[in-house]
Each structure stands twice: as structure tokens, then as C-alpha cells.
Design a protein around this nucleic acid. Structure first.
Length: 851
RNA sequence: GGGGAUGUGGUGGAACUGGUAGACACGCUUGGCUUAGAACCAAGUGCCGCAAGGCGUGGGGGUUCGACUCCCUCCAUCCCUACCA
């Protein structure tokens, strides 16, 4: 009697089997190690499809490597500090800690239900003092090494809630909760000198052969190393010079104005005496600190009335204040060459500043339609005419060194990492402020500095400066009354070293010796949105940990797989003030083709965007797991698109994945793998065996080299479709049954990393005599001699168009093949023999007749 | 604004090194089974055309015997843009 496929029963059995044996506990051994890590989640409470995709990919790779005989470490934990906990605290009046713990429990349950092969013994949450204690300790080391400093920097200030807002919390220049117009405010913050390592971070990219080029490029551009010239413009009737940085000194004869940032000292010095400038700066202050907002705003400027003196022509050129110049980059002042920089060109047009062409071009209209940004030969540049970029750079530098204090400078776009946050739910920065001793680090023996418990949650933002009891301490140096630092770390701090902690977790040290066995991470898997910040900070931290002799490797991640975003439609309603409130799709009603929320307000569609906590467009996998089981969800997730590609979420085809598993179950169930290999096979049997071994060869490449799991699944489907019906019948011959069993065995193995529960169950039914766990630690080998075929299919083209196909024996000569091709009926219709101008033959593939 | 990607049937995707475009699925159509439906099974399914044949990989142009693949250009969508993680 056959048994129907019941995912609930099968999955429960498989999961208990793994649990009982602690199958995925990782211990050092003589086997080659493989550390596979998926980016740990922020515990928002529910998994969404982006997580399912990420963690299925990681698990597929882990399980595949385990089958290949590797000693695999695949840990999981929680990146549990962050903004959403504070928001939830304010909205629901729960402590961030409680909320986080509940979320972790819920998400752990969801992860377990998906059957991921994690070593749960190594689980930790970054919000636990056991973890952040070591972060504070490491910070102290960096502090001693002079890598930490304080400097003023701008934040988004909500004047109503009296709190600092993240860029995400500023919507159209207004605070998301209060609706107040956001102000920029300068406050003193901690920074870490990542720019000291800019060259190292850039150079090491060359060695990251296992990283996607895309990500390496983005990091290179982010670091943004450029060679340029810094020099002074003398200012007419003014004591100070204006120091500018330019990467294009070759265009200096085209400089028709200069521009400075709104917070440049020169601009600030004019506020008092010039009300127009004061108004301009005042009116343009209200913009988010985000680069995107600054760069896309309308480009505005105001003439200071001051004149810079052109170093070569001695002409006066105006100095402007512009709202898009960044004080943080270069010197905060630039020379503007509208002829050869598009942004300068547009600004010049707007304010009627002259535009000069100083680089040769074959463009008829010169610079009248737009800037010519390509490098080239200098014109209209007096003694420098005719020089190319490099020569011009050198010659112009030589002159400016004499007169204008010029200096060739390497400049980085990368800025130092601001690590202070004015928040409650983060790792406290272990510093004590003493009136006499200044900032003093908290002694090692007093670590961790734990977060105070929350008793009273206000409706404003949370931060540590309201906990006066907690703040009051004695100075560790002089024992006088002192106060604790109230800033917490940027949460990127926690995620910059967790991978090392997983590899060497210990309650006695930050990272134990065991880490030397596991590190570096062999395969890191995570969303492409982390291509720059998280991955750059983690690389930076890894270098610091390496320098401090905590770990042996300099770069943390050997291979990187960046999965594409899972997108979903996002929906919102607007209030009277035009503020957006995001809504989950499930809370909407569809009335006469119009979307309404549950109070009847009109709902707008925002279009596809990544599943996120803030837009509430995450799709919870729970329902799907309940309905179809984890194997179907995993299989569908892998089948529906290749990992690197963006995925617009839809569950239209999940039924198909479920059907496939059911069909597969029906095929395998009731059979046993007990046939000896026969001595001979007929043609039909050979064909199936060829397909089985071909499939094995193909999927090995797809798994190992291409991370192409959708084609792995398609290949197995093809193999199963290729089994002749007669082989499945009860009266099939022994050799037919043998070939069928071989196909089944391969399919079970191939699918095991993707759908581990059902394959484990079927394997133990199919191979009842064998140890179950053997199935998950062995990978079959294909036989090359069975893959070879004596024939091939020749494609016959006329002028590149397919006109016929012929089955050809591989032993035939090119001449013989040509004559077979020419005798093809359909082909001969399309050509006359005397017309053939050329014949192209691609071995064992195609022949093309050109007429 | 800048940086990085992506674009192939009604849908998700395949084509790996310039060599058969549409594998494998979803959906749909027809038939079988069924009192009926679901499930399942079988056949068909890029578009135009009765057919011969033609057209077809975001649009336009180019290189090549041959282009989804290489080059130029334009468009659309997504990710990042330093305080979402």
C-alpha cells in the first residue's frame, strides 16, 4: 500500500532526527573545514521572503558542502540592536529588551520550521551583555591606539520630539512622527579612523577573487581614491586665500568661478555682514543630511561679491556659495569649470556665468549644449596649449607650486566612520567624562557597561541622557563625581565582528583560538544592499582584529554571494498634511477596483520595492509553510529565480513546486534500491543512464561554480521526465529497474540540499538497509564514459538561419558531414550549389552555408 | 545628482566560451477520469499567417558568416548614497 506525501509528518520526523543527533554541531576535525555564513537578521518578529531566500541559499550551500565531505560550520544569531525596537517601545509601551526577546523566540521558531542546518549551540544576540562586553573592550583597545576621536558633525534634529532622527525617519524634510520641519544640528560625536586604512581596504580588493565584480567596483568607487591638486586662489582685497581641490587642473583656464560649501569658513564669515547671505544659508539649511537629498535638490547659489584671482590670467573670478558643495570632501571649496563639468555648466547657465572651452573636441557646438567632460588636448590655455592631461597636470602643478602653494594630493571620497548614536537601544560607549581628567575609558574590570532598564517610556525618542542615576559614576582615574557617555554605537559595530565571534565563541575572551580553525568565512551570503557599508565596515574591523592578533586572517570573507532583493508592492494612505502611513497588503480591502484601508481611506500603490520593516511590505512565509511544508517553500524559492537576481515576489507558481515533490514522492515511494548492476544495457537504458550521469555532471557545476540552483532543479525535473514509462512498471526488466533506481538515487542526492526533509525520508525508505545519516554526508560521482555519445545533432544553417538538423556520427569527416548537410531536403530548397560563397563548420555543432 | 545592476512568450525563467532563442515550470486550451468539482493523467501552447513563410530577446544604430551574448546611444525598473539594517 502506498503512503501519501504528508509534509507535516515528514518534516517533523526529519527535524527530530537532526535534533536528536545534534547533526549540525560544528567541531574541529581533520576534514577540510567550510564556514558558510548568512547575514544574521535584525529580529523584527517575523521572517519575510528576503530572509527565506537568504537562508535557503546559505543552507543549500552548507548542505551541499557537507555532502561533499566538508566539516561545515553554519551558525545563526541576531543583530538585535536597532531602531525598530525603540519604535515598538514607544508605540506599544514595551521595553525594547522584552520586545526583542519575544521577536527572537518567534523568529527562531520560524527558522527551525524551515529545517536550516544551523549549529544552534553558537547562537547569540548582539544586544546581550555577553556579546557587547567584548565590543566595549575592543573599543578600549582602539581608543588606546589613537583610532578614536571626537568631532562635530551634523544630525537631523526634530525640534518637537527633541530627538535625533535617522535619515529614514525624515520624510520630505519632516519628522515622521511629529511632522516638524527637521533642522540640521551640529553635535560632538565619536569617529573611528577608517580613512587611515583607505589604501589598505582598496588594495585588498584585488585579492577578493571570490567576490562579485559588481561589489568590488562599488567598494572601489565608494573609497574613491583620486589624484588631484590642492592650491590657493588669492582673494582680491582679502587676507585669506581660498584653498581648493581639483582633479582636473588641466582645465584651469576654463575656471570662471569658484564655489564654497554653505558651512565653509568663508561663507560663515560673511553671515554677519551680509544679510542676503545669511538668508540664503538660513533658507537652505532645512534638508536631510543624506547625500541623495543634497545632490538632487535644486542647485542654488549666491554670489559672495568676493573675487578670486585666476593664477594664470590674473582675471577676477567670482566666488559663490552653493548648496551642493560638501564641506566633508576635499577642502569644501572648488574651482568651477563649466565648459568641462556638467554640474558647473548648469549652474553657470542658471546664473549667467561665462563658459569657456579649454579642451579640444570634435563636437561642432563646442560647449554651448553642455559640458565636455572627456580628457583631451588643451586649447585656449596659453603656454599649456597642445599638452595632454598628464603633461598639463605636471606643468600646471609646477607653476602653481611657485605661486599658489600647490600640492599634489591623493584624496579619498571615503570619510571617517561616525560611530556615535544618540539612542537607547544600542551598545553603550564605554567612556566616562570627568571634569578634571576629560574622557576616560571604563576599566576592563568594570565591563560590560550595561544598559539601564527602562521604567517609563516617553512618546519621544529614547536615549541614555535621560537616565540620570545610570549616568552618575565616579571617575576611574581620580574618583571624583563624573558622568557616563550617553551615546551608543552605530549598530554596524556589532555586525562588523560577529562572524569571528561565531567561529570562536567563549565566555573568557572576545574570540577564542578555535576561530583560527574556522576563519576566514569560506562563503558569505547576504543581500546586495549590504554591498558597501556593512561589507566595508566588516572588512575594516577584520583588519583591526588581525592587527590586534585576535585572528590570523586579514580579509574576512573568501567567497561572497550577494542575493538580489525580494521586492513587493508597498501601499500607503495620506493624512491631511500629506504624510504617508505605510500599510500591509493584508490589511487592505478591494472595493470596485479601488483599494481602501479598514477605515475606508483611499490607498495608494508605491510600486515595487524591497521588503522592509518600514514599508510593511514583507510577506510572511508562515502561511505557505503551513500549507505546503518547508521543502516546497525552499524548492520554490530556489526554483523561481537565480540567487543574484532581483525577485518580484509572487506565489503564483508555488503549486507547481508542491506538485513536483508529490510526483517525485509517488515515483520513489514503495521502491527499494536492491538491484545488482547488470552486465549489459540496451539503447534505451543507455540513454537514461547517459541522462542521469549528464545531470550529475551539470548540477555539480551549477552547485559549485555557478550558484545556479534554479537550473539544478530544472535538470532533475528533466531527468525525471526522461524516464520511460515502461521502466516504472512492475514487470520492468531488472536492467530497466536498475537504471530507474540510479536516476532516483541521483535525484534524491541532488535535491537533498534544497528539499532536505522529503529526500531524507524517501532515502530511508528507498535504502532501508543503510545508515540514514550517510545520505547527508556523501555525494555521488558521475562516470564520464557513460556521458559520451557516438552521435551528435548537426544544425544546418543557410545565411545563419536554421534550415535543418541531422543526426551525425562523430567519426565522419568534415567533407562527409557537408554532403549530408547539403542533401537535407529543406536545406537544398534554400540554396543553389553554385551560389555558396563560404562554408563555416563548427565542430560537432553546426554548419553554415553563406550564399 | 553620483555609483552599481537588471530588461527574453500571458507569467517566473533557460540559453554557461559569439553558434538551434524560449529548456524547466506557472498559466491557458482541448481531451480523459468524475454525478459534479478538486486532485490526477494525456496532448497542445512565442507572435503574425490557411499555408509557404516571415517576424521576434526594452527602443534605435553598429561589428560579424552568425548577436539575448560584443560596441555606441536612448529609455524603463531596482539597490546603495555614510543615522533602516
Amino acid at each position: 500500500m502506498t503512503e501519501a506525501y504528508n509534509p507535516k509528518v515528514v518534516e517533523k520526523a526529519a527535524q527530530s532526527f537532526w535534533d536528536e543527533r545534534d547533526s549540525f554541531a560544528a567541531k574541529e576535525s581533520k576534514k577540510p573545514k567550510y564556514y558558510c555564513l548568512s547575514m544574521f537578521p535584525y529580529p523584527s518578529g517575523k521572517l519575510h521572503m528576503g530572509h527565506v531566500r537568504n537562508y535557503t541559499i546559505g543552507d543549500v550551500i552548507s548542505r551541499f558542502k557537507r555532502m561533499q565531505g566538508f566539516n561545515v560550520l553554519q551558525p545563526m544569531g541576531w543583530d538585535s540592536f536597532g531602531l525598530p525596537a525603540e519604535n515598538a517601545a514607544i508605540e506599544n509601551d514595551v521595553s525594547p529588551k522584552e520586545w526583542t526577546i519575544q521577536n527572537i523566540d518567534a523568529m527562531r521558531g520560524q527558522l527551525k520550521s524551515l529545517g536550516f542546518s544551523y549549529d544552534w549551540n553558537r547562537e547569540f544576540a548582539t544586544s546581550s551583555p555577553d556579546y557587547y562586553k567584548w565590543e566595549q573592550s575592543f573599543f578600549n583597545q582602539l581608543f588606546d591606539q589613537g583610532l578614536i576621536y571626537k568631532k562635530e558633525s551634523e544630525v537631523n534634529w526634530d525640534p518637537v520630539d527633541e530627538t535625533v532622527l535617522a535619515n529614514e525617519q525624515v520624510i520630505d524634510g519632516k519628522g515622521w512622527r511629529s511632522g516638524a520641519i527637521i533642522e540640521k544640528k551640529k553635535i560632538d560625536q565619536y569617529f573611528i579612523k577608517i580613512t587611515d586604512y583607505a589604501d589598505k581596504l582598496l588594495e585588498n580588493i584585488q585579492e577578493l577573487n571570490g567576490w562579485p565584480n559588481q561589489v568590488k567596483l562599488m567598494q572601489e568607487n565608494w573609497i574613491g581614491k583620486s589624484k588631484g591638486l590642492e592650491f590657493n586662489f588669492h582673494i582680491k582685497d582679502h587676507n585669506n586665500a581660498l584653498r581648493v581641490f581639483t582633479t582636473r587642473p588641466d582645465t584651469i583656464f576654463g575656471a570662471t568661478y569658484c564655489a564654497v560649501a554653505m558651512d565653509h569658513p568663508l561663507a560663515i564669515s560673511l553671515i554677519e555682514s551680509n544679510p542676503k547671505i545669511r538668508d540664503f544659508i538660513e533658507n537652505n539649511k532645512n534638508i536631510t543630511t543624506s547625500e541623495a537629498a543634497i545632490a538632487t535638490q535644486e542647485k542654488l547659489g549666491i554670489d559672495t561679491g568676493l573675487k578670486a584671482i585666476h593664477p594664470f590670467t590674473n582675471e577676477d573670478i567670482p566666488i559663490w556659495i552653493a548648496n551642493f558643495i560638501l564641506m566633508d570632501y576635499g577642502t569644501g571649496a572648488v574651482m568651477c569649470v563649466p565648459g568641462h563639468d556638467q554640474r558647473d555648466w548648469e549652474f553657470a547657465k542658471k546664473y549667467s556665468i561665462s563658459i569657456k572651452q579649454v579642451i579640444e573636441s570634435d563636437q561642432d557646438n563646442g560647449v554651448s549644449d553642455g559640458a565636455l567632460e572627456d580628457k583631451g588636448i588643451l586649447i585656449n590655455s596659453k603656454q599649456f596649449n597642445g599638452l595632454d592631461f598628464d603633461d598639463a597636470f605636471d606643468s600646471i602643478t609646477k607653476e602653481l607650486v611657485k605661486t599658489n602653494n600647490a600640492e599634489v594630493k591623493t584624496n579619498f571620497r571615503l570619510r571617517d566612520w561616525g560611530i556615535s548614536r544618540q539612542r537607547y537601544w544600542g551598545c553603550p560607549i564605554p567612556i566616562i567624562h570627568c571634569d578634571d581628567c576629560g574622557p576616560v575609558k571604563v576599566p576592563e574590570t568594570d565591563l560590560p557597561v550595561e544598559l539601564p532598564e527602562i521604567d517609563n517610556i516617553s512618546s519621544k525618542g529614547l536615549n541614555l541622557s535621560t537616565f540620570s542615576d545610570w549616568m552618575a559614576v565616579k571617575c576611574p582615574k581620580c574618583s571624583k563625581d563624573a558622568t557616563r557617555e550617553t551615546d551608543t554605537f552605530d549598530t554596524f559595530f556589532e555586525s562588523s565582528w560577529y562572524f569571528a565571534r561565531f567561529a570562536g565563541i567563549s565566555d573568557k575572551e572576545m574570540i577564542s583560538k578555535e576561530a583560527n580553525y574556522w576563519l576566514p568565512v569560506d562563503q558569505y551570503v547576504g543581500g546586495i544592499e549590504h554591498a558597501i557599508l556593512h561589507l566595508l565596515y566588516a572588512r575594516f574591523f577584520n583588519i583591526l582584529m588581525h592587527e590586534n592578533k585576535l585572528i590570523h586572517n586579514e580579509e574576512p570573507f573568501t567567497k561572497l554571494l550577494t542575493q538580489g532583493m525580494v521586492l513587493a508592492d508597498a501601499f500607503y494612505v495620506l493624512d491631511e498634511a500629506g504624510n504617508k502611513t505605510w500599510l500591509n497588503k493584508d490589511s487592505l480591502e478591494d472595493k470596485n477596483d479601488e483599494l481602501l484601508d479598514n477605515s475606508g481611506n483611499k490607498v495608494f500603490k508605491d510600486g515595487m520595492s524591497k521588503m522592509s520593516k518600514s514599508k510593511l511590505n514583507g510577506v510572511d512565509p508562515k502561511e505557505m509553510i503551513d500549507k505546503y511544508g518547508a521543502d516546497t517553500v525552499r524548492l520554490y524559492m530556489m526554483f523561481t529565480s537565480p540567487p543574484e537576481q532581483t525577485l518580484e515576489w509572487s506565489e503564483n507558481a508555488i503549486e507547481g513546486s508542491y506538485r513536483f515533490i508529490k510526483r517525485f514522492w509517488t515515483l520513489v515511494e514503495g521502491r527499494s534500491n536492491n538491484i545488482e548492476e547488470p552486465s549489459a544495457f540496451n539503447k534505451e537504458e543507455e540513454t537514461l543512464r547517459r541522462k542521469s550521469h549528464q545531470t550529475l555532471k551539470k548540477v555539480l557545476k551549477d552547485y559549485e561554480e555557478r550558484n545556479s540552483f534554479n537550473t539544478v532543479i530544472a535538470a532533475v525535473m528533466e531527468l525525471i521526465n526522461a524516464i520511460p514509462e515502461s521502466f516504472k512498471k512492475e514487470d520492468a526488466s531488472e536492467s530497466q529497474k536498475y537504471c530507474l533506481n540510479e536516476a532516483i538515487e541521483f535525484s534524491l542526492k541532488i535535491l537533498s540540499p534544497i528539499a532536505p526533509h522529503v529526500t531524507l525520508e524517501l532515502w530511508s525508505k528507498f535504502n532501508s538497509s543503510q545508515d540514514k545519516s550517510l545520505f547527508e554526508t556523501s555525494w555521488p560521482e558521475f562516470k564520464e564514459n557513460l556521458i559520451l555519445d557516438d552521435n551528435f545533432e548537426l544544425i544546418i544553417q543557410v545565411n545563419g538561419k536554421v534550415r535543418g538538423k541531422e543526426k551525425i556520427e562523430k567519426t565522419l569527416t568534415e567533407e562527409q558531414i557537408k554532403s549530408i548537410a547539403l542533401s537535407n531536403e529543406n536545406v537544398s530548397k534554400h540554396l543553389q550549389l553554385d551560389n555558396i560563397k563560404k562554408v563555416i563548420y563548427v565542430k560537432e555543432k553546426l554548419i553554415n552555408f553563406v550564399i
